[in-house]
């Protein structure tokens, strides 16, 4: 029974970890930017919720109405004025600029808020719910719901709105997107703004679940990396599953060694690519299956409406072939 309870808590916390990875997944997968300041965005979100709760006396969940737009604009402005310029000269200058932003934000928060540990407490922080003999913290359930809603909203935004489609088009092929009238700089900045806005949600989760310091950003940045690397870049569903896997890993690894395990896990995945080997293996299985069942069905006839990016990539392929 105890084991089951631990596992359920791990899964519930998975939602929080998924939100931590969400923004990183956007910036790495879609903007192709390693944003080393993402951890500081998360901590900034936590401080924003804490201050709004203290000043206005509102529920921390309500504070998102203000902290999400605030971080969106912060992320947008930083991207459009600083990072976009550096991205033009390569990925390493951009990496170093975000590193600089991370250092600046960290020390600025230290100056403004002091080095004390902070926590967002509410009346319902310590309530547990009994379901079928298991006692589950209400907070974990609420945070899972919140992260589910955030992930769903982001998914809908990316697939159903013009801006979302523009972001994905820019991610696929910058040149083609620009040729079809999308402002690349603005779109990238919007994507980074959204990544920062998810950090506001993540910050609230971090603040309500754990305590944080101005210097905690690096810690959450690395967790975000682990989630993204497990879940795959720009893949929303994968991020959610990765969050749950990571949550279970933390619960099983315990407080002191859970983090070390996840670091080692990240190093192994980044350097040895076991997951890619697995994907290749699965692909090979799939392609042999396909060869057995279907032949001659591939190619034209199925895709009736081509987006410009698809068209361009096909052209590229055909020119490569000739």
């Amino acid at each position: 029974m105890y084991v089951l309870q631990v596992i359920i808590n791990g899964i519930l916390l998975g939602g929080v970890y998924a939100v931590l990875g969400l923004g990183m997944s956007l910036s790495l997968g879609i903007v192709k930017l390693t944003n080393l300041a993402h951890g500081e965005y998360i901590i900034l979100g936590a401080y924003a919720s804490m201050l709004l709760q203290a000043w206005l006396g509102i529920d921390p969940f309500l504070s998102l109405v203000i902290s999400v737009p605030f971080l969106f604009f912060a992320g947008y402005l930083i991207q459009i004025f600083l990072v976009n310029r550096a991205m033009m000269s390569g990925s390493e200058p951009a990496l170093l600029v975000t590193f600089g932003i991370s250092v600046i934000l960290k020390d600025a928060m230290l100056l403004v808020f002091g080095a004390d540990a902070r926590h967002i407490a509410t009346d319902y922080s310590n309530i547990t719910v009994d379901i079928a003999g298991l006692s589950i913290p209400l907070l974990n359930i609420l945070l899972l719901l919140l992260s589910g809603v955030a992930i769903l909203l982001l998914h809908l935004f990316m697939h159903k709105t013009y801006t979302g489609r523009a972001i994905r088009a820019v991610s696929d092929d910058r040149e083609a997107a620009s040729l079809s009238g999308i402002s690349v700089g603005h779109t990238l900045a919007v994507a980074c703004g959204i990544a920062a806005a998810t950090a506001a949600v993540a910050g609230l989760c971090v603040g309500m679940k754990w305590t944080w310091y101005p210097s905690s950003g690096g810690h959450y940045l690395l967790i975000a990396f682990v989630i993204v690397v497990i879940g795959g870049l720009g893949n929303v569903a994968g991020t959610f599953i990765a969050g749950i896997v990571f949550g279970l890993m933390q619960v099983i690894g315990g407080a002191s060694y859970g983090l070390l395990i996840s670091y080692i896990f990240l190093i192994v995945i980044l350097t040895l690519h076991p997951h890619e080997a697995l994907i290749r293996f699965l692909d090979r299985m799939k392609s042999t299956d396909r060869q057995k069942t279907a032949n001659g069905l591939s190619g034209s006839g199925f895709v009736t409406v081509k987006t410009q990016t698809e068209f361009k990539s096909e052209q590229k392929e055909s020119s490569d072939a000739t």
């Binding site: 600083l82 600029v97 600089g100 932003i101 250092v103 600046i104 020390d107 600025a108 100056l111």
Partner: peptide
Amino acid sequence: PGWSNIILGALAILMIL
């Protein structure tokens, strides 16, 4: 105190840009 990394970071960003 507390300002050194902020100023160093800002200078580095300006230099990169």
